[in-house]
Amino acid sequence: METLQDVARIIGELPEVTEGERYGHPTWSVRGKGFAWLRPFSKADLKRFGDQTPPVPPIIAVNTAGLHEKEGVLAAGIDGVFTIEHFNNYPAVLIELNVIAPGDLRDLLVDAWLAAAPAELVEAFDG
């Protein structure tokens, strides 16, 4: 079981990351470009789950390198990784922290950072 502290620790190891807020929720950016954020469910999101039990918060959203990458991540069947209707046609996936394995969380956060970081930071990154 991973926590928001684990997310912050992993992200804190990445170059030039700043933490801020978007819509009142923690958001992490590299040179002003957001790549990960806390994503609680809205009332509309919860309604769309219908009779299905929604994933348990906290939920983190992370960008992917594109829609093709998003489909690949979802097709990999990683426990705790999912999407919702609100994210249709948007290059990001959601992560249920209570379910995801530590290594998978790290990989997804690093990949999100790589997708957002400028080329010179990516080239210099040794993680």
Rank of each mutant, 00 (worst) to 15 (best):
K33H: 08
T53F: 08
G50V: 11
P26Q: 09
G80E: 02
V56W: 13
L74A: 02
L114P: 09
L109G: 06
S42W: 02
I59M: 04
K43Q: 14
S29T: 15
P57R: 06
N98I: 09
I95S: 01
Y23W: 13
L67H: 05
A8N: 03
G103Q: 14
F82L: 05
H68W: 06
A61H: 01
L74N: 03
A92Y: 02
A116V: 14
A101I: 10
D6S: 08
A61M: 05
G77I: 15
D126H: 14
P57G: 06
A112W: 08
L46T: 12
E69G: 00
R22C: 00
L94C: 07
V73I: 15
W37H: 08
D111F: 07
T3Q: 04
A116T: 13
G24I: 15
T53W: 10
K70F: 05
L109C: 08
N89P: 01
D79S: 11
G77F: 15
V73N: 04
R31T: 13
N63T: 12
E16V: 09
N88S: 02
D45Y: 01
A61S: 08
L67I: 11
P54H: 10
P15C: 02
T64D: 00
T53I: 11
P57T: 05
P54V: 13
K43A: 13
P118M: 03
A65I: 07
N89K: 12
D111C: 03
F49T: 10
G12N: 09
G20S: 12
V62I: 08
I59T: 08
I11Q: 07
N98S: 14
V99L: 11
Y90K: 01
E71P: 00
G32R: 09
P58N: 03
I95D: 02
K70P: 03
L121E: 01
W28R: 10
A112C: 09
E69H: 15
F49E: 00
K33A: 00
E120Q: 05
G127P: 06
G20K: 13
